[in-house]
Structure formats: C-alpha cells, structure tokens
Design a protein around this nucleic acid. Structure first.
Lengths: 348, 348
DNA sequence: TTGAAAGCGCTAACAA
DNA sequence: TTGTTAGCGCTTTCAA
C-alpha cells in the first residue's frame, strides 16, 4: 500500500544522509554559493537515493516568486481560447513559468472569485480576458495592490495595463465592406451580445467592436440595417433558431456575418435546415478561421485572427513587464487577415 | 506608479492594526477556533482596510495541501483535450480545487519535465494522459513516492491507478463492423500512430485499441487489409497527403475511417481534392463528434465519446480517492455512442 | 568552503 | 476568549 500523502524527502533529510549542514545541502542542490565538488557530489547522491524533489512552495515562500501565472478566460473548450492558452503556455514555459487556468464563463462573479484564488496563490502575473467592460473594480483593485496584469482579446481602457488584441473594429468593417462591394445590401449579423453564465449582459470590447465595424460599414455605404437583422443569441442552437426566423422573412438577407466560431456554426445550421445553398442562395462569412472552415461546402470566407499568437505575445509581454515594471503600458495590436474562399457570391 | 512587486498585507499587519495577537487575527480571518464577535469584527475591518488577501502558499506550507491538481495532457488546443480539461476544471472547482495544466505534445521528455514541475509544486493529485505506454518510470516513481494519479483517455496497465477511459477497442470494432455490414470490403484507416514532438514513436492505448478494433473487425469478417491501407500520418496535412495517394490507387478503398478529429479533417481534405463525393464515391466515418461534423456536406457518421465527462469523472475520481486512499484502484469505462448520419453509402 | 540562524506567512498545539 | 510558541522547507545573510 502507498503512503496516504506524499512524504517527500526535504533538504534536511538529504543533509543528514550526506553528513553536511542544511545550508550546504541546499547550496549543492540549488547550485549556488560555493560547495566543494566532492561534497556536491555526495549531496547529490544522497538526494537521488532519497528521491528528493525540491519543494517549490517553500521556495516561493521565501523568494516571494511563484514562477506561475494565472489565466482568466471565458472557456478553454472554445477553440479560440484553447489556442490562445496554448500559445500562452508555450510562451511562458520557455522561461520556466507555469500557468493556472480558470474559466469564467463570461461571468463577472466567477471572475471575481477566480481572481481571488489566483491572488491568494500569489501568481507572478495574470492574463485576463475580462468578462465585462463595466464591472472591473476587482481588477482595478488587484492592479492597485501591485498585481501584474495583461489584458488579452478584449480590454477595458480604464485599466492601465498592457493589452494584446486584434483590431476587431477594422477587421469587421473591412470584411463587411467587401461584401457590400460584392453587391450585397441586405447583410445580417446575429447580435454579438455576451450574456454570462450569471445571466448578466456584459459589454465586451471584442464583440462590441465587431458590431460597430459592421454597423459603420453599412451606414458608410448608405445601407440600412433592417429591424431584426441582428437577432440575439449566444449558443449555437439559439443562433440557428434566430437566423432561421430571419431566413423565412420576405426581405431575407442575402448575406450572413458570423462574428465567431459559434455564430458561424449556428448560421450554417440554419441555412442547411432552410435548404438554402451557399453561396447561390445566400452568402456567408465569418470571424475566426477554425480548422473546419475549409471542410464545409463551400469553404468559408473568413477573417482570420492569430489566436495562438495572441497568447504567445501575451506571454512575452508579461515576461518583459516583469523585467521593466515601470515602462509605460502598451497596446499590442496583432494583424488579422481576410481569407477569401467560396462562400460569397456577387450580387448583380 | 505601482509597486514593483505586489506587497500584500499579512496577518501580522492585520493583527497589529486591529490591536490583537496574530493568532487571534488568524482565527478571525480563518473563521475557526473561537473569537469574540467584537474582535472578529474589528479584525475583519482591519483586513478590509489593508486589502488583506490570505496567502495560500503559506497555508499550503503548513497544511501540506495545495488544493491544486496538475494535469498532463498532449495538447489543450486539441478540441478533445480542451473539452476534457473543461470537464476536469469544472469538477474540481466545485470542491475548491484549481488546476495547473501542462502540455506534453505526446513527448515523454516533456512529460518527465512537467511531472517534475508539478510534483515540485506539491499538487494534491495528478491527471495524466500518458504519452507513451512503454516509458513510464517517471510515473511509477511518482506513484511510489505517494503521488496521487488518475489516468485518463489512455492508460498504462502496469500503473496501479484509477483510470477513466472509453472502450476504444469496442467502439472501433463496432463502427467498422457496421460499415462492413453495409457491404464495404475495402476499408482504409490512416495509421493511428503517435509520434511525439521528440520524434519518438509512442504506443498509446487509445490509438492502439482503435487500430486493433479496426483490424479485428476486418479479419473477423474475413476481410483483408491490403498493404498501404493504413498510411501513417499525424498532422492533418500528412494525413491528407497519405490518403490522397491511397485514393489514386486502382484498388482504392470504398470507405475511410478517421480515428480522430485530425484524421477526419485530413481525410476530407484528400477526398475533396480528389474531387470525390461523399458518400456516393466514398464513404467516410470517424471518431469524435466535434461541432463541425454536422456542418460538412454530408454530415458525418461518427463514434461520439464524452470528452467533457471524461474530465468531469476524472475529477470526481480524484476527489474521491483523496478521501479513501486505500480503496482498490478502479477503471471507469464511459460509454461511446454511434451517431448515424449521411456519410456512409451501402455497397450493392 | 561550510555552518548557524533568521525568517517568509501561515496553522496548530498548548497555555494562560 | 486570547496569546505564545513552534514549525512547514526553503533561501539568505553573517560568521567561522
């Protein structure tokens, strides 16, 4: 039978076994200070024999550093955040850091909770995709207490932190403009509203910017957005249902903009169940170039954003900030790109 | 300007401010022992004023518990693991645990590394999807030192731990049998081999079982698997290329089995670029019911496995094991299901 | 090169 | 009810 709880050897044990003082053992193990080669060797041998594994908790206790970052995102199961987190992990790992991930489900109360836990764990820095642009006292307070924070994907301008994002407004504006140039006048976009798991409606810069991009592209082109062209929804099935209704209208749209992965999925569901063909009956385009966008028929034209790189860059920014805490906060805007495929038909 | 490093108030600070001893302050803050209501209140007030946040590192130091689990999986950006991790997080969070996630990229050396880090952090338990079935000394050694481990998705039978998996062999055998019953005799399956980022070829029970299921279903039906019907590949593009070659053969398969998300993607890429129609020219079926399988034309018939639940169950198992360390190790086999859609055509 | 001792922030046993 | 004390495992002066 196994021990109930892992009882690992400590430096004291190693020191005793090697017949030296704790300080010497610690030096040999930690490879600092000066230790004679012979004692170093005997200490190391003793450590190996005992299966010694340094307790980084204790180390953190004295150094005040945990070499761990926290990450607060909506949902790792969302492919966008999954890739982002992968980039972040990879980026910090190079410097020997780890990450504790917590999902907020777009709920501010979860965010508050998770933030508390992470601060309790004394993470050296925090990556956060804030759940709501108008409830951020907890983040402000963390900042005031000296907590290092980087905002990613979305941001709250009031918070004086580094930010790593893409230009959602521009990307959206440009994409919609393209479709307008292809002759479309009736373009609908399921409403990009984020309602958290706690039921609150949250303003999130990302979706807000994409909406504004859409709206402005329309109005700059002198186009109206008919009532109901922005049906609300968040879950794939909600979106599908909302869009389904839209497609049964007499003045149904000729193009549909899916502002993220889930929206695109919902849109396609609706188009399929209305037995409409893309792009001959209706054009479709979206945000986020997930793997599957090339495998549907036809392949989808989308705005591609560098999810992995957003995470990677955030890691670099955080790591850099650790070294120069007083440099001015920066915004890092990563480029998006338009990937033209076959889901948009010109309108005569 | 902000403080360089977060300098949080400690119990001592709170105690001083409230004019009580550290122990009393700790009791008031931690809500244990007995403290008079009045002092409790004044301590709490002092804590709030100072922005006190308990240091869980220090707490772990003395209790020996971190209330943190580690997770060692191949890649969070893989939708399967992303969902699994989400389930795991949700499951442990209910009991106030957090998770530190590390990606191994199917590389044993990364796994060894990550394991060391996690043990150093003294996680209370470990979720691992082992990278290789034949190099697991590090895991065995962790176990010997009393580390709590649960294996998920795949497992090494030699390791005496709880296991949470699906029956990959059976699921695969049944699926292939169905396709055989539909009249297919030439069924190919890109080879399910896992080569880690370190270049080593790793045996992984999951893929191994799926392969055996396929092979046995074929041979039980008296069918041959022609040479080259299991082209190797791991990346989507590799798979696409390998399958492409297969499709150009005179005796090309009439059905293709994609053993996971990535395999399916590669297969569809190949079928598309050979301008073949599913299912009229070739039937396709796969493992893992990702979101996009319903959005391709035609929707894909697949084996669905409960990724989220695998994680959730693992959490429960780990939590339970913490309470009864000496109960015998158990295997938890979660059910898969066959989702019949439109990608398989009968053969006359 | 080595050792002794202090202390990180907390919990927990024991006294008062 | 409150305070004193020791100690978790480590790093880090300071002396020897």
């Amino acid at each position: 039978m196994r021990p109930v709880s892992p009882s690992r050897a400590s430096v004291s044990d190693v020191a005793r076994k090697a017949g030296v003082s704790r300080a010497t053992a610690a030096r040999a193990l930690g490879d600092y200070g000066s230790v004679s080669d012979s004692t170093k060797e005997s200490v190391r041998k003793a450590a190996a024999d005992l299966g010694y594994s340094p307790n980084s908790i204790a180390r953190s206790m004295v150094t005040g550093k945990t070499r761990t970052f926290g990450a607060l995102v909506a949902d790792v199961a969302n492919p966008f955040f999954a890739k982002l987190m992968r980039g972040f992990s990879d980026g910090v790992r190079k410097e020997g850091y780890n990450v504790i991930l917590m999902n907020t489900d777009e709920s501010v109360s979860s965010e508050v909770n998770a933030l508390g836990v992470l601060i309790g764990k004394r993470v050296d820095g925090l990556l956060v995709a804030p759940a709501s642009a108008d409830r951020y006292e907890h983040l402000q307070s963390a900042l005031d207490h000296g907590q290092l924070i980087v905002q990613v994907d979305r941001f709250i301008p009031e918070l004086e932190t580094d930010v790593v994002v893409v230009d959602n407004y521009e990307a959206s504006y440009l994409a919609v403009s393209r479709v307008i140039n292809a002759g479309h006048t009736r373009i609908a976009a399921p409403l990009l509203r984020s309602t958290g798991a706690d039921g609150h409606f949250n303003i999130v810069s990302t979706m807000d910017d994409r909406t504004r991009g859409y709206l402005n592209a329309m109005s700059d082109a002198g186009l109206e957005v008919p009532r109901g062209y922005q049906p609300p929804g968040r879950q794939r099935s909600e979106v599908a249902q909302a869009v389904g209704g839209l497609l049964r209208r007499a003045d149904r749209p000729t193009a549909l903009f899916g502002a993220d992965d889930t929206f695109m999925l919902g849109i396609i569901d609706a188009v399929r169940s209305e037995k409409l063909g893309i792009p001959e009956d209706i054009s479709v385009f979206g945000f986020d170039d997930t793997e599957w966008t090339t495998v549907v028929t036809p392949p989808l034209s989308v705005i591609s954003q560098p999810a992995y790189d957003l995470g990677l860059r955030s890691a670099q920014v955080l790591l850099q900030r650790l070294k120069s805490p007083y440099a001015e906060a920066q915004s890092h805007i990563l480029p998006t790109s338009w990937v033209e495929r076959d889901s948009i038909a010109p309108i005569a």
